[in-house]
Design a protein around this nucleic acid. Structure first.
Length: 274
DNA sequence: CACGAGACCTGTTCGC
DNA sequence: TGCGAACAGGTCTCGT
């Protein structure tokens, strides 16, 4: 479910609900959810730790504890909820943690792709990530250079978290459309002007997503309404909001990819046409 | 290095 | 109605 705006929204919610609370116990109902350490070590170490801050890096949630970091990646279908008072476990609950003040933190994840780590130093897990789109490190010049350091299709490159942190399938399609760039264009074919446009588009679609509290699709994530503002994602067969041309869907890197064949013209020195 | 395919999983929707 | 195929917001690993 979650890309940067959704995780940011969840971090905001957790921050208000969890800071200051202390872990009392943990019920791990699908052991593979825990990436590290072992379940026994996890339960032992978590107990008694107080949550001091909640932040987001890429699509990871980082709960800083008294003496460790609890990192959570929701992957495709994970969700976190905070419940007050008694709680009856539900079908897709993978971890139920009891906290002080009669609070429970529940990690629910139908597809079981989500992962949780309890580590000393977040860098162990987050070390290889690319820059945050809202950081000062992410500039038009950096993007232009980075695009030209490789020769890859734009969409898979933007999805690569070691290149740039936080974009997923929705926001990548939206950003490429806003920047009028074709998902299959070679990264090193992008001009300085186009790189600046892409830089702006990435920030714009992410800001828009955050402003709408993320996108809610299907049964998984609720709360946001950015799904009502998609320009191309999931809009196959509908008119492009810019030019009216029918939005098409292709597969790129095994991901459904939505774009406007009129606005987003492919630029690739090897195959200049189309 | 870049890319495609397969894995990991369950649930929903599509197409015949 | 039924039933298999296709698809889903992510990432990892392996083979070419």
């Amino acid at each position: 479910m979650p890309e940067l705006p959704e995780v940011e929204t969840i971090a905001w919610t957790l921050r208000r609900a969890l800071i200051g609370k202390t872990f009392l116990s943990a019920d791990l109902r699908w052991p593979r959810t825990l990436a590290a350490p072992s379940p026994a070590a996890f339960k032992k170490r978590l107990k008694g730790q107080q949550i001091t801050s909640v932040s987001r890096r890429a699509k990871f949630l980082d709960l800083q504890l008294s003496d460790a970091h609890l990192l959570i990646h929701l992957r495709m279908s994970g969700d976190l909820l905070v419940v007050l008072g008694g709680y009856q476990p539900a079908k897709h609950d993978r971890l139920i943690a009891k906290l002080s003040e009669d609070t429970s933190l529940i990690f629910s994840d139908p597809r079981k792709f989500g992962r949780i780590w309890l580590v000393d130093d977040p860098v162990e897990i987050l070390g290889e990530l690319g820059p945050e789109p809202f950081s000062e490190a992410f500039t038009p010049d950096w993007l232009y250079s980075a695009l030209h350091l490789r020769r890859r299709q734009l969409k898979p490159l933007l999805l690569d978290q070691t290149f740039l942190a936080g974009l997923g399938n929705i926001y990548t399609d939206e950003a490429l459309h806003l920047a009028k760039l074709h998902p299959l264009s070679a990264s090193d074919s992008v001009t300085k002007k186009q790189a600046k446009g892409l830089w702006r588009a990435v920030r714009e679609v992410l800001e828009e997503g955050i402003r709408h509290n993320g996108a809610s699709i299907d049964w998984v994530y609720r709360g946001g309404d950015f799904q009502n503002h998609f320009r191309v994602y999931g809009q196959t067969g509908k008119p492009c909001p810019v030019c009216g041309t029918t939005i098409e869907r292709i597969t790129v890197g095994q991901r459904g990819t939505h774009y406007c064949p009129q606005c987003q013209v492919r630029a690739n020195p090897k195959n200049p046409v189309q």
